[in-house]
Nucleic acid binder design. Structure first.
Length: 454
RNA sequence: GGUGCGGUAGCCAAGUGGUAAGGCCGAGCUCUGCAAAAGCUCUAUUCGGCGGUUCGAUUCCGCCCCGCACCUCCA
């Protein structure tokens, strides 16, 4: 069964297949802006894309090229650098490293190519130059270059923005007109090149239109073109990117290249936290480190992010993270009882994944197998399921914390009391340990200590 | 105002024109001196409301109620 995935543009399920004669599947996924630690909402998108990547590699072994960019110059990165009195490069390096570390912890495969915006200035300038020459762009008085939306008939196909504009209460339109009326010919035109402003500081590059920096949208068009060619097979991102980012990418790329940009568009939905949109003011914005500090493993987060269908909003809760930890533990226990056996029982799991990346359906099918017991279930195929989902069971175990000496001393005392069958003393010591936040697990010939969950 | 998505057990969440997967929590049991761990068992006559189509609808259609997201740089 081929992988079927919803296409945001045609709004239907379409099978995934390479469109180029070389059989290489070209996959572009919009990456992060590296100005702060990514939050779990960001990671939902990256984890979903990672499962997609893994499925593609199982389907087209050795023939997948996955490109994911890093946005390392924009208003936010520049502001951060300015606020901290550091260079743009220092700031973006720090958060790029952090992003990589978090992705590794979440068992997300690194993309085959991870291009940066600042590393592709020339490619972006070249594209803008073509757009200027073809009449799809114009230079404003201040040296900025804008894309002329009216020059591209296909504009709005992805997001149906034209339908929107017809009936817009025009409040938003007025707002954007007020801001940009001086420079843009039309409110819907967007920046390809932003003329240098004083607050940009040293972050400026030369161009035929004067010093400045590239607009946000052009970077993906340029990097996609450079690393995957004019036409790619799949372009993905979070739902918020559908408009304007992806709409603008299509316009830029198709006008510049004169050919279809992407065969397939896929957008994953956003994450809610405790039923509300994540925001700093609500105090419900979590990073991976926040959750680690609460004692959760990164793998539990990965699992929790896969519990909902990628094309539905998912409500993240701490309770859900607990559920994820427990579910992972069940999978670990189940795995230890496995040897070789029937690989076919896992077919429903893969069928669910191939059917529009239905991860909750796949997990449900998986636990249906788990509940039938390990007899005759094939270990290697189970492992392949874990590989597809990117669940590293080994890494999901809670890190073994070493108990401090005072705790060990108490535990030793209790162990001695227990062996002396002094139950009263033993129970009192157990209580004491519990109060100190440690659970003492008795085994046949010794004990282990583990910290209680916060 | 426009566009799109959704409302399924205490929480999270699949799914189907033919009578509700799964996870968590909870309860009971087994095993343990106790506890934990592990294992077993149980837990929605019901799928936002009202109509309609149908032999039959949670699943299709209509209306209504509620929630959420996007609408220029937020994954």
């Amino acid at each position: 069964m081929p992988i079927q995935l919803f296409d945001s543009l045609e709004r239907k399920l379409k099978p995934l297949a390479p469109s180029h004669p070389d059989g290489v599947y070209r996959f572009y996924n919009c990456g992060p802006t590296v100005y702060a630690a990514a939050h779990i909402g960001n990671f939902r998108t990256f984890v979903v894309n990672d499962v997609l990547r893994r499925l593609l590699e199982l389907e087209f072994p050795g023939k997948v090229v996955h490109v994911r960019n890093l946005t390392d110059v924009d208003d936010k990165t520049i502001k951060r650098a300015r606020d901290e009195g550091r260079s743009l490069n220092e700031v973006t390096k720090q958060w790029t490293d952090k992003f990589h570390a978090d992705c590794d912890a979440l068992n997300c495969l690194r993309p085959h190519v991870e291009p940066t915006a600042t590393g592709h200035i020339a490619e972006q300038v070249d594209m803008i130059d073509v757009l200027m020459k073809k009449g799809n762009a114009y230079r404003a008085a201040d040296g900025s270059v804008y894309f002329k939306v009216s020059s591209f008939d296909g504009y709005g196909r992805l997001s149906r923005v034209k339908e929107r504009e017809l009936q817009v209460g025009t409040a938003l339109l007025h707002k954007s007109q007020a801001v940009d009326a001086d420079e843009k010919e039309d409110a819907t035109d967007f920046a390809l090149w932003k003329a240098h402003k004083t607050e940009d500081g040293a972050n400026s590059w030369d161009s035929p239109w004067g010093p400045g920096r590239p607009g946000w949208h052009i970077e993906c068009s340029a990097m996609s073109k450079k690393h995957l060619g004019d036409t790619i097979d799949l372009h993905t991102g979070g739902e918020d990117l559908l408009f304007p980012h992806h709409e603008n990418e299509i316009a830029q790329s198709e006008c510049c290249n004169g050919t279809l940009f992407a065969h397939h568009w896929y957008h994953s939905k956003h994450l809610l936290v405790d039923g509300a949109k994540m925001s700093k003011s609500l105090g419900n914005l979590y990073t991976l480190d926040d959750l680690k500090a609460k004692g959760f493993s990164p793998m539990a987060l990965r699992y929790a992010l896969l519990v909902g269908h990628p094309r539905k909003q998912l409500n993240f809760t701490l309770e859900g993270l607990h559920a994820a930890e427990s579910a992972l533990k069940s999978l670990r226990n189940f795995r230890t009882g496995l040897s070789s056996g029937d690989a076919g029982v896992f077919a429903p799991v893969f069928a669910a994944l191939h059917d529009d990346l239905n991860t909750p359906g796949a997990l449900g099918a998986l636990f249906t197998i788990v509940n039938r017991g390990p007899a005759g279930v094939d270990a290697a195929t189970f492992d392949r399921v874990m590989l597809a989902l990117g669940l590293n069971l080994k890494a999901s175990e809670s890190p073994k914390a070493d108990a401090p000496a005072e705790i060990t001393a108490l535990a030793d005392k209790r162990w001695a009391a227990k062996n002396a069958k002094d139950w009263a003393a033993a129970d009192a010591l157990r209580k004491e340990l519990t109060a100190l936040g440690w659970n003492m697990k008795d085994a046949k010939d010794g004990y282990t200590l583990e910290p209680l969950k916060k």
